[in-house]
Design a protein around this nucleic acid. Structure first.
Lengths: 161, 161
DNA sequence: TATTGTTATACTCTATAACTATA
DNA sequence: TATAGTTATAGAGTATAACAATA
């Protein structure tokens, strides 16, 4: 329902209801195009995952816990670039839905080791299938070389050259 | 304060305080890298504009109004991909700071034509200077050809093929 | 002292729904 | 009917500050 780009540009289709404004200087800003692209994918993700009720960030947390059993909230926060309080709220939502469990660490009793529950693993499996079709929509826009270049560029931005 | 990536990967630097987790399957997702890159630029933007108190979206609205005097909230919402209520809140904040004025349209009295105030134009001029230095940090990461390719790829994502 | 989890607080963003005025 | 603005509401994300327990 969200992205819904005009796949074929029908010339006969006169001025749509949405008059596109002149983006002016915005068009020169990397941040602007990055934000627009992010929003497009974010919405397609949200639409795709609507039936599961999982956001991009919630899925990221579940994938990280799945791949790093026993990770702490601080570990997740550092990896995803948020702070402790934000991650707390995120994990709380997932714990409330019984997807993630907290277990006190024996080695360091300040830490809570995070693990997926059985329900969490089942949800993740369902999510991965939906994600594949979601990703494919965007993969199809590019050749393999183009996609490699795009991913490399994005990594350079957030890993810092 | 935000992005702060390790510019040089010093081998002697032993395990930092932030243990990076295995991103696992996330690393294969375009949406994940796009989100991380967006967050990095978003934070650098926020840090850069802290003294002015302008967000990416607020600046986008001001640039659009500057380039399209008399545009309505609906026009802005359609261009930036949000809905009326979200744009209403955005414009309210800018109007409360006396950067934007609403004037009823003579042609269609349902519409409010938006214009920058004198203070808004002054703020935009200050913002543009700060944005240039912010953008330059990321432009420097790429060659001209690389940047062209990156922008083209991002546009393809949100304009849809 | 520093770190981890936690709680409280607040602001922003986002979206939906419903209402008013106008077309 | 449809559109533009508006208001109310709610959930999610984000960040800061403070505290307790532990290192």
């Amino acid at each position: 329902m969200a992205a819904k780009p005009p796949q074929d540009e029908i010339e006969a289709e006169e001025a749509s209801a949405a008059p596109p404004l002149d983006v002016g200087r915005l068009g020169d800003l990397l941040g602007f195009h990055l934000r627009m692209a992010h929003v497009a994918i974010y919405r397609d993700f949200a639409d795709t995952m609507e039936e599961l009720g999982l956001t991009q960030k919630q899925l990221a947390v579940m994938e990280l816990v799945a791949g790093n059993p026993g990770a702490s909230q601080i570990d997740l926060a550092n990896t995803l670039g948020t702070d402790r309080a934000t991650m707390m709220a995120l994990v709380n939502r997932l714990a409330a839905r019984d997807f993630i469990e907290r277990h006190p660490s024996a080695a360091d009793r300040r830490r809570q080791e995070l693990h997926l529950t059985k329900a969490g693993r089942a949800m993740l499996a369902r999510a991965r299938k939906l994600i594949n079709t979601h990703e494919q929509r965007f993969i199809d826009l590019f050749s393999a070389d183009e996609m490699d270049g795009l991913l490399a560029a994005l990594k350079r931005i957030y890993k810092g050259g």
